[in-house]
Simulated assay, not measured.
Amino acid sequence: MPTLLEDFLSRDTSRVLHATWEIIRSRDEAQLDALLPHIAQIRTATEGLDMGGMLRSNAGNVDHAIAKLESYRGRECWCASYPGMDQYEPAKEQDRGHIRIISASEPGWSMSYVCECTVCGGVFNVEQGDHHVMWWKWVPRGEKRRRAH
């Protein structure tokens, strides 16, 4: 089975997208640590690659995965990634144990949440919207904290 690094460097869009989403969803330190020395190489290999995408470019997801690796290298908490991408659904993040939903507005297509990171306690206001696809805008309410190691 190919490694995530091999997938990123393959220039095969399906493999690159697989590695991208593995990183976006990951909190596995060993998995991420293995990629840290190769961030520049990953960026070069994926730069200019036609990643496709119907309503939005998948290249933005690749950029976000690289930004998450850089944030992780800088020892920022996992939640530092939330404002950089509008596809982190609060309910799914809570199901994964990553955040706790403190409050939510009445259910509907346009909702708002207050969420707390289960690692550092950082609190976010989250706005949910829908324009062809559902999205979530994460706005930190206070300072970002460093994750413990």
Rank of each mutant, 00 (worst) to 15 (best):
I99A: 08
I99M: 10
I99R: 00
I99N: 08
I99S: 06
R100T: 15
R100I: 14
I102N: 07
I102P: 03
I102D: 15
I102F: 00
S103C: 11
S103W: 12
A104Q: 14
A104T: 15
A104W: 05
S105D: 04
S105W: 03
E106T: 14
E106I: 09
P107G: 10
P107Q: 11
G108W: 02
G108L: 03
G108C: 07
G108S: 05
W109M: 15
W109V: 15
S110I: 07
S110K: 01
S110M: 02
M111P: 02
M111Y: 07
M111K: 06
S112F: 13
S112V: 14
S112R: 12
Y113W: 12
Y113M: 08
Y113A: 02
Y113I: 11
V114D: 15
V114C: 14
V114P: 07
V114H: 12
V114F: 10
V114I: 15
C115M: 11
C115L: 12
C115Y: 11
C115G: 06
C115N: 04
E116Y: 05
E116G: 05
T118I: 10
T118Q: 12
V119F: 06
V119G: 09
V119P: 05
V119L: 13
C120A: 02
C120M: 01
C120Y: 01
G121P: 06
G122K: 03
G122N: 09
V123N: 00
V123P: 03
V123G: 03
V123I: 14
V123R: 12
V123W: 09
V123K: 09
F124Y: 07
F124P: 07
F124K: 00
N125M: 08
N125D: 15
V126P: 03
V126D: 00
E127T: 15
E127N: 08
E127F: 10
Q128G: 05
Q128P: 00
Q128Y: 08
Q128M: 12
Q128F: 08
Q128W: 06
G129N: 01
G129L: 01
D130I: 12
D130F: 14
D130M: 12
H131Q: 05
